[in-house]
Design a protein around this nucleic acid. Structure first.
Lengths: 233, 233
DNA sequence: ATAGAATCAGAACGACCGTTCGAATCTGAA
DNA sequence: TTCAGATTCGAACGGTCGTTCTGATTCTAT
């Protein structure tokens, strides 16, 4: 009876296909280094034909990054809903991020490596999502700290950024088939992080006076997920 | 008496100055996004004048990366020479890397972010240095493992890559004046890493059977410092 | 004073860039 | 079979790119 929007499905599927090709060349050559003619060649669609599906190269990158990030975010929310244990929730966060990184390495590379390319409208929306993602992680870590009643040797911001570093650096070295699978990798990174922020096991045991500097946040700028800014051409 | 090569000193100083400007724009806009005309504008040197000091944009990037990396390597060797304690040596490694990252953030960004741009001659030499750097770190971690007699819950390669991740991600989020100084930061990252790879402090205590998968290195490719390859335009 | 190093403006080179346009082709409902 | 709308295309536009050339000038050390 209702066969709604036969074009739209068609259109969306084709666009998704193009997005996959675009992800590939952006990952290979970088956003600036990749040309629309590269994409045309790889996808087999004529240069002009591409522009039937999106209005600009910038928008193309936006589509990729937005889709990647919102997928990660969506899965995270689903998975976090099933547990209220602080440690387990952090492991879920890591597992979710690492699994996606391993699964869709190229998408993740485009998201991480071309982080500061988009500006204004597109960039702002992504930045907001990213800040939210960062805030979630901060929340998880602070919940753990409270539950464990541990006086922190490492500041929360540093800890979270270190965690993002471990996870986001994956795209530079991970080789499927050579390196451990997402499950093992998640456990390993989780182990390092959790043992890392929990005390003990240190030689000097310089417990007091450490980290978390006195004056807190005299900074004008708000918190960021990372990634410095890049001036436009 | 001997006043040798007065030009050469001049030449080198001027080149170094240009390299600083180039580091700035490469960090700002990325290698592909930055143009020689940008560099000309920023440095105040005419477009043609620039080519008196180097033969191509590629070589420019090579100079920057090569100088940055060899400086880090040089300092590392000096500092490692003064200690033979496994933990302290790892802390020295971290301290050396983090200090430089904080001190010369832009150089470090160009080194990390534009990692896979150079190919062939230039790229190969840098890749070799990088592999050596990675090997040193592997050696330090394995020395610690042996000294501590700890059965590892985390594979050495994963651990080292996680460490590189924590350190190399710095350029994306670190803000001087807002975030801790290099000394505190080094200690924090060192704490996370060292406590992280030493056991204990975990809930489940799934000590055996974990990580370090059975078949070791069936991979054809050699070990890498990280960073995937990028196809040339 | 003078040779040679350093620098300049300006134009030009061919190559490639992102994007657009009008025409051609295809597709599915009538 | 028709035909409107969806889809695709070749060709071109105006720019910018890295690099080189010319020819002249300005520094600088002797």
């Amino acid at each position: 009876m209702d066969r709604p929007a036969t074009h739209d499905n068609r259109f969306d599927r084709r666009l998704a296909e193009i997005l996959d090709y675009a992800t590939e060349i952006f990952a290979e050559k970088g956003y600036d280094g990749a040309s629309m003619r590269d994409l045309s060649r790889l996808s087999g669609i004529s240069l002009a034909g591409l522009y039937y599906y999106f209005e600009s190269k910038e928008k193309l990158l936006y589509f990729i990054q937005q889709h990647t990030f919102s997928t990660i975010m969506l899965r995270l929310r689903e998975r976090l809903a099933v547990s209220s244990d602080p440690e387990e929730r952090i492991r879920i966060f890591i597992r979710n991020h690492v699994e996606y990184s391993v699964d869709r390495q190229k998408s993740m590379k485009v998201l991480s490596h071309e982080d500061d390319v988009l500006r204004d409208g597109f960039g702002a929306e992504l930045a907001a999502t990213k800040r939210e993602y960062y805030r979630i992680c901060i929340g998880l870590v602070e919940a753990l700290k409270k539950a464990d009643e541990l006086q922190p040797g490492v500041g929360t911001r540093t800890a979270v950024m270190a965690l993002f570093g471990m996870m986001n650096w994956l795209y530079t070295w991970y080789r499927p088939g050579v390196d451990p699978g997402a499950d093992v990798l998640s456990r390993e990174i989780g182990d390092i992080f959790l043992q890392g922020i929990r005390g003990g096991n240190l030689r000097g045991e310089t417990v007091p006076s450490s980290g978390e500097r006195g004056k807190l946040s005299t900074s004008p700028a708000g918190a960021e997920t990372g990634k410095s800014s890049r001036k436009q051409k």
